[in-house]
Amino acid sequence: MNPDDPAWELIGCYLGGSATPEQTRQLEALMLKDPELREAFLRYARMDAALGGQTPSAAGELLLSETPWEDAPKIRSSRLRLSPVAAAAAAGVVFGMFCSSMVWAYVAPVASKTLGLLWESFETGPAPLAEGVPNEASRWGGDDSDLVGAQQGVKPASGTRMLRLLRPDFAGKPPVTSVRADMYRVVDLRAHRQDIGHGEAMVQLSALFNHGVSGEALGSDGLITLYALPNARAFTGLAPDDSRLSLSAVAMVRKSIARLDDQPQTWEKLQAELRLPAETEFLVIHLGMKPLPPSAPGSAFDGLYVDDVRLTLGRRAALQ
């Protein structure tokens, strides 16, 4: 179909949610009798879905860098020692309900209020505990790791330090998963029960991954998981790994990159969203990386880095 064909405009309006009833009927009539137009419509929809499924890179964030959220104070909860409510309020920004029904209707259901729950750039604080999933909120735990400055061609994405993953085998970790370094952090949401109780709360998690120029490894992967838990029992007491988190979770989401690029000067971002069931009281953030090709279980790693972990809480109405 010719790029100047006016039907493209109608398709754009319809899939942007901005078509008037008259435009909708016009496009519908055309599509019912034109297979080529239907094919063009499906192509446009697939591309829109693919773009919408992408994770924004730093370039995209440049354009957004002046939003109130970016101006909000950074939350490094391990050292600010704010209560969860105070911390959230410090970073909270009201985006306001956007409800233009014509041109921008497709963003209308977006969160009316977004609170920053965590913004971790690993600048201060102790190294994470190498004891599996931590039993308490506000600190990282998991496999052996440390906080380091620029090295192996990798510069921290923000600030002067980043998290380096060193080993995949904290005590008690099942051997089958001891090829990947895993880090966890518990987030206590009990102060937000009112925000979550209506079933419209959404959390968004993002983290940056990179790997340095090292001896044997040719690359690495990366993953993030977010578990919504109804109580503290899923992460206290027993196995220090994540084998029971997925069974205890009332909801979970995972995203991964099968292979990071080979450029230590660029960070790659993973981002995931999760609607929180009303009974959610805790979240567990899980970050994982392993070298490629995978090394033998229990081997030490060289050059796997994570930085700039962010978690926000917002609200979006569920479909009726």
């Binding site: 499924g53 994770t55 838990l229 109804p230 109580n231 029992r233 899923a234 029971r244 997925s246 069974l247 205890s248 979770a249 009332v250 909801a251 979970m252 989401v253 995972r254 995203k255 991964s256 990159i257 099968a258 292979r259 990071l260 790659e268 993973l270 995931a272 999760l274 069931p277 009974e279």
Partner: peptide, 14 residues
């Protein structure tokens, strides 16, 4: 990259 995503609502609390 190659990303995947899944969402599970287990229903029962652990």
């Amino acid at each position: 990259g190659v990303t995947h995503e899944f969402f599970a609502a287990n229903g029962e609390a652990g």
